[in-house]
Simulated scan of single mutants.
Amino acid sequence: MKVLRISKEIEVLMGSIGAFQSLFMSTYLFFHRKRNIQNILLSLFFLLITLRIVKSLLWVYLDLVPDWFLNLGFAAHTASGPILLLYFLHYIHPRPWNPIHFLHFVPALLLLLFLFNINESNFWYRGGYSALLYQQLIYTLIAIGLFVHVLFKKNTSGMDVKDRWWLFLLLAGAGSIQIAYFSNYILGLTPYLAGPVIYAVFIYVIALFGLLNKKVLFKEAFSSRYNNIKIGDAEFNTSKIQIAALMQNEKPYLDPAFSLDKLSRSVTLPSYLASHIINKGFNTNFSDFINSYRIEEAKLKLMSPQYDRIKISEIAYECGFNSLSSFNKAFKKHVGRTPSEFKKSI
């Protein structure tokens, strides 16, 4: 009995800590001055998870919890999967909000509509809860697929190592609670509160990583400055291929003075249009776009035996950087390690 009591105390403590930290992140993101569509989505996700965890704790440890509050927790659970997937989509490819996205939340809205009419006996234990769990599993698997695509896709220069770690931590935290609930009810493999307990660990790691790397929390959202640019898909794709071919064949990025104006003249495009194609077509800004090519060039030289006795600073200058400090900073941003660490690992 003593072990069981300690176990319950740990469940309540861990679940409460996770809910509190999740609520803190939700509030912090929503009221931050740099709030954008991505932050709003993530803020709502943390709020929905908070409601789901509180519902679970109350249902287990209180005898009388109103049906409407249980339904509110289930509605929050239903909306959590779609909102996380939409956050991933907006984080990886910043874009304006599309009203069609609201269709993802129709099931949650229907639950809110019948908040005071349904209960465990007439809905949840008659297939409603199973449907919710399968729905969340599908959204989780789609998010995993999207993350794997980003992880292994080459030339996603708008995404650096910290971005990938950030998405991984979010996916691991959210996936743990979704899969744990599924495993409990559908498979009968885990305790009911396993999800909130595991999530409590992840949410602190997520919060620490995000607060220490605020760039991932407040990633630049979609900019409306390109809204008025009119360019057909065929012309856009042709110009994108032309820019990529220029970079690969002529390697203009090796010139430290290479600029957007020089690139624009090389591909005979106006500067604003070249910038638009880089931002939208390569999902990055001009500086990161150029540096991604310079870093790949530097990696080849660092791995080549011909450069074993060449100083890293000389390699930096050969690859188009005008200072060693800017090279080190860009290299760590794109690779996750310093040039010296990378060379030692070869």
Results as ranks from 00 to 15, higher is better:
S313K: 10
V65Q: 00
F222Q: 03
H32K: 10
K153E: 13
K262G: 04
L115S: 06
S183G: 14
H149K: 14
V60P: 00
I40S: 12
S259A: 12
F24V: 15
S22K: 05
H101L: 13
S266H: 07
L44N: 14
L208W: 12
I142Q: 07
K162I: 04
L64S: 13
T338W: 02
L302H: 02
I186M: 13
I83N: 00
D308C: 10
R35Q: 14
L72I: 10
Q178K: 08
G158E: 05
K280E: 15
L89G: 01
G320W: 02
N291E: 13
L47Y: 07
K240I: 11
Y199H: 11
G210K: 02
P99S: 08
K280W: 11
Y134L: 14
D160K: 05
A180C: 10
G73A: 02
Q306C: 07
Y139L: 08
N249K: 13
L23C: 10
Y87P: 03
I118F: 03
E120K: 10
G18I: 02
G281L: 06
A143E: 04
N328Y: 12
E341M: 06
N155F: 14
P256Q: 07
S259C: 09
I118D: 00
Q38P: 02
N249S: 12
R164M: 12
L254D: 03
N322L: 06
M25Q: 09
Q136D: 15
L86S: 02
E296D: 15
W166R: 01
I198E: 06
K343I: 04
S264R: 08
K311Y: 13
L137Q: 06
V54Q: 00
L57N: 03
